[in-house]
Design a protein around this nucleic acid. Structure first.
Lengths: 195, 195
DNA sequence: GGTTGAAATGAACGAATGTTCAGATACAAC
DNA sequence: GTTGTATCTGAACATTCGTTCATTTCAACC
């Protein structure tokens, strides 16, 4: 029978990822040293290498997990929703998910250029996969006449950019509640696709 | 009478800024070394310090010049335009200006966190100044009844995020011409503010 | 042709980087 | 209490970093 895993590892592994995510998002991948991450966790730099083969993999894993989580959560959220209501569902979901994961969203967008070519291809594919979820919604609605769009692809990019932008200004303690912001973005999106 | 400036300096100064802009945008400020920049210009690292006091100032100047240029160009573009047409003018201008300056736009957004606190405050003020140009347009239109907006501030941020997003996908050799893209974004913006 | 001075070099600086690894440590199992 | 092993340290490694500066280069002038 396998030996029970050491008690520290159950804590340290996730703690490293959380610290790395926070620091990478705040200062940028290249500007954060392994010693900084270790210090944040309360451990020395060498110990990090029990949990990740190297710094690049640490970054890559954070980005991959974010995007895979995003896709999985969306597929869960949309299941059982009629195509007609899918757009509204998407907007609500996207805003919610992104507000709750500012650091990860920031990282997955800002640090693309610090990925190796191979890792970049994987991350980029995941991003496109998510984008094409929205594109499919718009495309269906366009064909059915529910939406009237000048260009499906451009509208897709426009809506995603607009929605993701919420992270550059929204604050939970700000003037507007999360629900109010969601409603406003929903109305803006409706207008953008209105037949 | 002042001595004529050395012949090299007329070339090298701008060349350094161009190389730095390109490299910073491609790989990130922290990931680019002074030796890389110098090599790109065809000079050794020490020579850079004849043109900039340090790396941080090099970054800061690039960002400041971009934002100051953006503001000045916009104020030039809008002059003589009636308030009613200002929004359309803004969209055209913003898309055009941003498409033509991908690296600078990218830099001024991505590298905010690598600025010293003092420099960050200056850059951030310039950004807000530009944003409030659009906000003023929307606010006027809202008051006059030309637009119907749920929230002026959120709509401002939404429009800017949507428009700036053009840089993440547009290519001059792509499926759509610049003029076509401008028109699509213009229509999307019109819908977002429609009374 | 010699003088001047800006431009650029090349070597060097201390500091910080990612990563490795032999040894110390802590803790579950017996 | 001894053993076994996962965990972690501390020191060291080869590089690379931003920056400085004495020295060299070279075009412009008298």
């Amino acid at each position: 029978m396998a030996r029970k895993i050491g008690s520290h590892a159950e804590i340290t592994g996730p703690a490293i990822r959380e610290a790395a995510l926070r620091l990478f998002a705040r200062s940028g991948y290249a500007a954060v040293s392994m010693r900084e991450i270790a210090s944040e966790v309360g451990v020395r730099a060498g110990a990090l290498y029990l949990y990740t083969p190297d710094k690049q993999t640490l970054l890559f894993d954070l980005m991959r997990e974010h995007l895979e989580g995003l896709l999985a959560a969306w597929r869960e959220a949309r299941s059982g929703i009629e195509p007609v209501e899918r757009l509204e569902c998407f907007v609500q979901f996207h805003v919610d998910y992104h507000i709750d994961r500012r650091d990860a969203v920031f990282l997955a967008y800002m640090e693309l250029r610090n990925l190796t070519d191979e890792n970049f291809a994987i991350i980029e594919a995941l991003r496109r996969e998510y984008e094409s979820e929205l594109e499919a919604i718009l495309s269906e609605g366009h064909k059915s006449g529910a939406f009237r769009l000048a260009d499906v692809r451009v509208t897709t990019m426009a809506v995603i950019a607009m929605l993701t932008g919420v992270n550059t200004w929204f604050s939970e303690e700000g003037r507007l509640s999360r629900e109010r912001v969601q409603r406003i973005y929903l109305n803006l999106t409706r207008r953008m696709v209105k037949a």
